[in-house]
Simulated assay, not measured.
Amino acid sequence: MLCSGKGGTGKSTVSVLLGAALARLGRKVLLVELDSGLRSVDIIAGVYGRTVYDIEDVLCGRCEAGKAIVPSPLYPGLSVISAPYEGGDVEAAPLGRLLMAVRPYFDFVLLDTAAGMGAPFTAAVTVADKALLVLTPDPVALRDGKIVADRILSGGRPQSTVRLVMNRVTRDSFGKRAAVFDLDECIDTVGAQLLAVIPESRELQQAGVHGSIPSPGDPAVTAGQAMAKRLCGQRVPLTF
Rank of each mutant, 00 (worst) to 15 (best):
M1R: 12
M1P: 06
L2N: 12
S4H: 11
G5L: 05
G7M: 08
K11D: 07
T13P: 03
V14P: 09
A20F: 01
A21C: 06
L25S: 14
K28T: 13
K28E: 14
V29H: 14
E33H: 09
E33F: 03
L34N: 12
I43F: 10
G49E: 02
G49N: 05
G49C: 03
V52F: 13
Y53M: 05
D57E: 07
C63Y: 05
A65M: 03
G66L: 00
K67G: 02
A68D: 05
P71R: 11
P73R: 14
P73N: 13
P76G: 10
G77F: 04
G77M: 02
V80T: 09
I81C: 05
I81G: 07
S82C: 12
A83D: 04
P84A: 08
P84K: 08
E86L: 13
D89Q: 12
E91L: 13
E91A: 15
A92F: 09
A93G: 11
G96S: 14
G96M: 01
A101P: 03
V102N: 11
V102R: 09
R103G: 08
P104M: 01
F106N: 09
D107W: 03
D107G: 00
F108N: 11
V109S: 13
V109N: 11
D112Q: 09
A114T: 02
G116Q: 05
F121D: 07
D129Y: 02
D129S: 12
A131Y: 07
L132V: 04
V134G: 03
V134A: 02
T136W: 03
D138R: 08
V140M: 15
A141P: 05
A141R: 09
A141S: 15
K146N: 13
I147F: 13
D150K: 09
D150T: 00
R151N: 08
G156C: 07
R157S: 13
R157I: 02
M166Q: 10
R171F: 08
R171E: 15
S173L: 00
F174C: 06
F174W: 04
G175E: 07
K176Y: 09
K176A: 14
A179Y: 09
C186V: 12
D188W: 01
T189D: 06
V190F: 10
I198W: 08
I198Q: 12
E200S: 12
E200I: 00
S201Y: 03
S201M: 00
R202Q: 14
A207T: 03
A207R: 07
A207D: 06
S212D: 11
I213G: 01
S215E: 07
P216W: 01
G217T: 08
D218R: 05
D218L: 01
A220L: 00
A223F: 07
L231S: 06
C232T: 10
G233L: 01
P237M: 10
P237S: 13
T239K: 13
T239M: 10
T239P: 00
F240D: 11
